[in-house]
Simulated assay, not measured.
Amino acid sequence: MTHIRAFAIRDTESVIDLWQETGLTRSWNNPHLDIQRKLSVQPELFLVAEDGSDIVGSVMAGYDGHRGWIYYLASSPQRRGEGIARDLLAHVEELLLEMGCPKVQLMVRPGNEDVLSLYDKLGYERFSTTTTGKRLIAD
Score class of each variant (00 low, 15 high):
Phe7Gln: 03
Glu13Leu: 07
Val15Cys: 09
Asp17Val: 11
Asp17Met: 07
Trp19Ile: 04
Glu21Asn: 06
Thr22Phe: 03
Leu24Thr: 11
Ser27Pro: 08
Trp28Tyr: 11
Asn30Leu: 13
Asn30Pro: 11
Asn30Cys: 14
Pro31Ala: 07
Pro31Thr: 08
Gln36Tyr: 10
Gln36Ser: 14
Arg37His: 12
Arg37Ile: 13
Arg37Ala: 14
Ser40Lys: 10
Ser40Phe: 06
Val41Thr: 15
Gln42Met: 14
Pro43Thr: 13
Glu44Tyr: 06
Leu45Asn: 04
Phe46Ala: 10
Val48Met: 05
Ala49His: 01
Ala49Arg: 09
Asp51Lys: 14
Asp51Pro: 03
Gly52Leu: 07
Ser53Val: 10
Asp54Ser: 11
Asp54Pro: 02
Val56Gly: 00
Val59Cys: 07
Ala61Phe: 02
Ala61Arg: 00
Ala61Tyr: 02
Tyr63Asn: 01
Asp64Phe: 06
Gly65Val: 12
Arg67Glu: 14
Gly68Asn: 02
Ile70Ser: 01
Ile70Leu: 11
Leu73Cys: 12
Ser76Glu: 07
Gln78Val: 12
Arg79Trp: 10
Glu82Gln: 15
Gly83Glu: 07
Gly83Val: 00
Gly83Tyr: 06
Gly83Gln: 13
Ile84Met: 10
Ala85Phe: 10
Arg86Phe: 02
Leu88Asn: 02
Leu89Phe: 01
Leu89Ala: 00
Ala90Ser: 14
Val92Phe: 05
Glu94Met: 09
Glu94Arg: 11
Leu95Val: 08
Glu98Met: 09
Met99Gly: 02
Met99Pro: 01
Cys101Thr: 05
Cys101Arg: 00
Cys101His: 01
Pro102Val: 01
Lys103Ala: 07
Lys103Ser: 08
Val104Leu: 05
Leu106Gln: 03
Met107Gln: 08
Val108Cys: 05
Arg109Val: 10
Arg109Glu: 15
Gly111Thr: 09
Gly111Tyr: 04
Asp114His: 13
Leu116Pro: 00
Ser117Thr: 14
Leu118Tyr: 03
Tyr119Cys: 05
Asp120Ala: 14
Gly123Val: 00
Gly123Ser: 05
Tyr124Phe: 04
Arg126Trp: 07
Arg126Val: 13
Phe127Lys: 08
Phe127Ala: 06
Ser128Leu: 09
Thr130Lys: 15
Thr130His: 13
Gly133Lys: 06
Arg135Thr: 11
Leu136Met: 15
Leu136Lys: 05
Ile137Lys: 11
Ile137Glu: 15
Ile137Leu: 15
Ile137Gln: 15
